[in-house]
Design a protein around this nucleic acid. Structure first.
Length: 494
RNA sequence: GGGACGGUAGCUCAGCUGGUAGAGCAAGGCCCUUUUAAGGCUUUGGUCCUGGGUUCGAGUCCCAGCCGUCCCA
């Protein structure tokens, strides 16, 4: 992908622009359109040639020239705006000198035309142009109009070209916007308050992940881009905002893949006087309602697999899922660290020396169970050891009241009843610090102010985080997270 | 981090066991007043990703690197 500046196509267009500059305003901004292509087609697409001739309709449209067919003294071109495209018809006889200039214009130029509607011999509604203006000279040739861009690298690095060329790509990002609007409407209707909490954190918290580090000059302190907004949002529930949410970016200093981008969008919400099972119901309503609104169906195709959202979503405990996928395991030894280490050794699953039975369980689950959760499934009963912010289960202190939600073998959301016991939280942070000191880079820091907030009293609360990008992937049938991010992370080009 | 695959004209792609770098579209010129991947004639356009190596000779083979895609961890 190397188009150097001196390729002759660009040179020719620069020469044309130089002539435009000599003649006056090369980039005029006084053309005002009065119609969009799609609106014209909707309003007059059914009118007959005779009716259009009897009662002429004048329109002013503007957009990018996407096709150009010159036949001597008459030409056709396709003019594309945000709504769609309409054909324009130009004649030497009607336009004079401007027509001769038009013949030198290029596909990709932005033009404005004024004229009357008519139907061509092939019955296509078109604009018979009476006035014609070049609004923006395009200096770079567009990709092949028939093949489009196949080069994924160019699609991601030059999203603007991708958006010009690919209707499908535009549609994905329009759908993304609709999904985010749906999320807001869904939560607003349930009495949630949208808030904004800091992106620059003195202590990165709320998740197990490596943060991006930065530095605040005036204060001369180390800062971190947030890995999750969780601890701030829960401070707000202490403050009395009983239903809050935030939709914004998190940053994690980790690998890039079809599932991961260093910055990604997360919905987090907290609801007081609710528990983790209330949130399972909320997720179900959310995913089903979105399918209804977006697709008009609760069955969707994701990369060749039918996903059925119409049934009540499955709920299975972590230990059940582990046993279902590895039936040889001894059900009575699932919390025996020595036994689990032998299992990991046998299955070639890496683990760290300090990993206890809870962490080992999750390692086994992630290797053997996750990818089997294709239909919407809540995996619940996460070990307390890997859930330092979750409320312990009343009957079984080994586990917490926590689930993760899977579709297509992929984690889309994580929710739990919140740990609101300040003293338990302080102890869990201490355990995390020990793990960090032992070399676990993903272990959490001790957040003293957060513990202090809990000491004021946080009502019983449940919260969840939902990966918006992955959700958009699901609903737009996109194989890679890069397909749903306008400007995905790439290595610097220059 | 490991593996597989890819990088050739502005775009999409050919290029066999090593032997003068190709097509379509786009672009320049000429013709053309109802086309829609318009058409006809014609011309131009290359750091074959980069750097080494083997060879009389490398787009092609070898090594290293860069960028990307997918899979795995």
């Amino acid at each position: 992908m190397s188009d150097n500046e001196d390729n002759h196509l660009i040179a020719e267009r620069r020469a044309k622009l130089a002539k435009l500059r000599e003649r006056g305003i090369a980039f005029p901004n006084d053309f005002r359109r009065d119609a969009l292509a799609a609106d014209i087609l909707n309003a007059y697409g059914a009118k007959s040639a005779a009716v259009l001739e009897a009662t002429p309709v004048r329109v002013k449209v503007a957009g990018r020239m996407r096709a150009k067919r010159v036949m001597g003294k008459a030409s056709f071109a396709k003019l594309e705006d945000s709504s769609g495209a309409i054909q324009v018809f130009l004649q030497q006889q009607a336009l004079g000198e401007v027509y001769d200039e038009f013949k030198t214009w290029d596909v990709g130029d932005v033009i404005g035309v004024e004229g009357t509607l008519f139907r061509t011999k092939t019955d296509e509604l078109s604009v018979r142009v009476e006035r014609l203006v070049l609004l923006t000279k395009s200096l770079r040739p567009l990709p092949d109009k028939w093949h489009g861009i196949a080069d994924t690298e160019m699609r991601y690095r030059r999203r603007y070209v991708d958006l010009i060329m690919n209707e499908e790509s535009r549609r994905v990002f329009e759908t993304r916007s609709r999904i985010v609007r749906y999320l807001r409407a869904f939560l607003d209707a349930r009495g949630f308050l949208e808030v904004e909490t800091p992106m620059l954190h003195p202590i990165p918290g709320g998740a197990a992940a490596r943060p991006f580090k930065t530095h605040h000059n005036a204060l001369d302190v180390q800062m971190y881009l947030r890995i999750a907004p969780e601890l701030y949002l829960k401070r707000l529930t202490v403050g009395g905002f009983e239903r809050v949410y935030e939709i914004n970016r998190n940053f994690r200093n980790e690998g890039v893949s079809t599932q991961h981008n260093p910055e990604f969008t997360m919905l987090e919400l907290y609801q007081a006087y609710a528990d983790y099972s209330d949130l399972m119901e909320m997720i179900e309503a959310l995913f089903q309602g979105l399918a209804d609104t977006l697709l008009g169906s609760r069955k969707l195709n994701y990369q060749g697999t039918e996903i059925d959202l119409s049934q009540s979503f499955a709920r299975r405990s972590i230990e059940d899922i582990i046993l279902a996928n590895t039936p040889d395991l001894d059900p009575m030894s699932l919390r025996d660290a020595a036994y689990l280490r032998r299992v990991c050794d046998y299955m070639k699953i890496p683990y760290k020396a300090g990993d206890g039975p809870g962490k080992l369980q999750i390692e086994i689950f992630e290797r053997t169970g996750e990818h089997t959760l294709v239909q919407p499934t809540f995996a619940y009963a996460y070990p307390a050891e890997v859930s330092p912010l979750s409320r312990r289960n009343d009957a079984d202190p080994f586990i917490t009241d926590r689930w993760e939600f899977f579709v297509g073998g992929r984690e889309l959301a994580n929710g739990f009843s919140e740990l609101n016991d300040a003293e338990d939280q302080a102890q869990r942070f201490k355990d995390q610090v020990e793990r960090k000191d032992a070399g676990d880079e993903e272990a959490m820091y001790y957040d003293a102010d957060y513990v202090r907030a809990l000491e004021y009293g946080m009502p019983p609360t449940a919260g969840l985080g939902l990966g918006v990008d992955r959700m958009v992937m699901l609903y737009t049938n996109s194989p890679s997270i890069r397909d749903v991010l306008l400007f995905p992370h790439m290595r610097p080009e220059f």
